[in-house]
Amino acid sequence: MDQLLNDFSPGLFIMQAVILIILIVLLGKFAWKPILESLQTREDGITDAINAAEKAKLELQNLQADNEKLLNAARVERDTMLKEAREMKDKMILDAKEEAQSQADNMIEAAKHAIDGEKKAAMVEIKNHVAELSIEIAEKVVRGELSNKDKQLELVDSLLGKETLN
């Protein structure tokens, strides 16, 4: 260290100090100012980007909340539509059952009327057939009875005997 003090030259020191001050002034005017401005611009850009990212994050959260609300509304609407569809299905099935029952009742009633008509027609036909058979039997009996003259006279007498004259 003694050697440094021995080699110390005040003129050289002043000259170096002046050169250093000139260098600092030149650097301050031409280099540091643009460097500091670019650093400030970069810092402002980073701050703006952070603010934009936070704003985008808030917007994303709002969008997610809106999407959740829309999903819930869509679920409710879907459930409502499914419920209405089930009710319509049940109503259609009930209406179809009622219509089928009504048609079945009408068909049964028509069949009963048809059966009654057929029954009456069959009874009339049976009565006519029985009457024809009765007439044929009576005719055969009467012919048998009236074929003989003695039998005819006996029949007339018996009929007259039963009848009383006024």
Rank of each mutant, 00 (worst) to 15 (best):
V156R: 04
L155R: 06
D90P: 00
A52I: 04
H113D: 15
E139C: 00
T47V: 07
S102W: 05
L146A: 04
I126R: 10
E84H: 08
L165D: 10
K120F: 08
E37N: 08
M15Y: 15
G161D: 11
A131P: 03
A110M: 09
L159E: 02
E77I: 05
I50K: 05
V142K: 11
D116S: 10
D105Y: 06
E118I: 07
A53V: 02
L20F: 12
K69T: 09
V141T: 07
E132C: 03
I115E: 12
L82W: 03
K97Q: 13
L159G: 00
E59H: 01
S9I: 03
K91A: 09
M92P: 01
I21L: 11
A110N: 02
S102F: 07
R143C: 00
A114Q: 09
H113S: 14
V130R: 00
N148Y: 02
F30E: 12
G45W: 01
D90Y: 03
I126H: 03
D150A: 04
E154G: 01
I24P: 03
G11I: 07
Q16N: 07
E109Y: 12
I14Q: 13
K83P: 01
T164P: 00
E54N: 11
K151E: 13
A110W: 03
A138H: 01
T80P: 00
F30W: 10
K69P: 00
R86D: 15
A121T: 03
